[in-house]
Design a binder for these strands. Structure first.
Lengths: 152, 152
DNA sequence: TCCGCAGCCGAACTAAATTCGGTGACGACC
DNA sequence: GGTCGTCACCGAATTTAGTTCGGCTGCGGA
């Protein structure tokens, strides 16, 4: 699907999405015009979905992060879709995973402080009739990869 | 900490990190030179930590995603640090959360297929002596916010 | 009031993005 | 085996953006 050149371009843009096209062209050994066209095609094909700044959450007054594993019942499509949608709209919510296995949903939440987290759990989550249970884990550290090397 | 102008710039860069400085300046109503200086300061202060392309995982031959909640013992700093480090180096691992609460670690894993996930769990995780248990949830959908609106 | 500082602006210069016509390699088809 | 069409790439030319820096302005302190 992706040739070696595409992979190299993707890797460079994962590392630093704001480096210039010329820089990427230079590092990959192709002409800037070619590089530009490759990147355009990668976006068009949906390989590159966007470019986003990575912001320090503490600077946004979100010093507390947690992961909340929730179970909802009944586990019908209507309930799942509605729950995902409405939870996703809450400002404390960073990310919603719809899963199968040990939980139905995993919700990444960020608040200014522990009180805010407690308020979220009590006022936003526990009051929902479809939520039959949830477990909360406070995040101490988070290691995230920006690039994904190919599997051996 | 951040004034209104900084917040606006951050928001725009979260939405699209590759739009031009001039564009950001125009949207925020300031001069390009001012905007450039603001962005430079935001990076210097650590508010902006980087810019990364968001890549479609299926295009990278990673059609399967899962979240694995793991318990390790003993829960000493040495064991935690070593586990985080070595798990984070595995190519299947996208992200490692170090948590307290219902689990010790939450590991986001991505593989080409279900066999790859099974191999990861059996060959990489279960064989570790410090791992006393884990639960796996397959990810069906993932909703992620690129921007974070201020809390009411 | 006056001074100093900080932040912003705009002009000038440098560098990058973008467009587009040309070129060569490759494969299909006679 | 030759010819034609296609595709990807390149490089020059043009448009646009990044970057630097001197000066202006408004504000707070003396």
């Amino acid at each position: 699907m992706l040739d070696e050149l595409d992979s190299a371009i993707v890797r460079l843009l994962q590392e630093d999405a704001r480096q210039t096209n010329r820089e990427i062209a230079r590092k990959t050994g192709i002409a800037p015009s070619t590089c530009l066209e490759r990147i355009r095609l990668l976006r068009e094909r949906g390989v590159i979905r966007g470019y986003h700044a990575d912001i320090d959450l503490a600077s946004l007054n979100r010093g507390v992060r947690a992961l909340v594993a929730a179970q909802v019942r009944p586990l019908s499509r209507a309930v799942i879709d509605a729950f995902q949608q409405s939870i996703g709209e809450l400002p404390e919510v960073l990310s919603v995973y719809v899963t199968a296995g040990s939980d139905d949903f995993l919700i990444e939440v960020t608040t200014p402080d522990i009180d805010g987290l407690h308020a979220f759990l009590a006022d936003r989550l526990a009051i929902r009739r479809e939520v039959v249970g949830f477990r909360t884990s406070i995040i101490f550290r988070h290691l995230r990869k920006t690039t994904l090397e190919p599997l051996a």
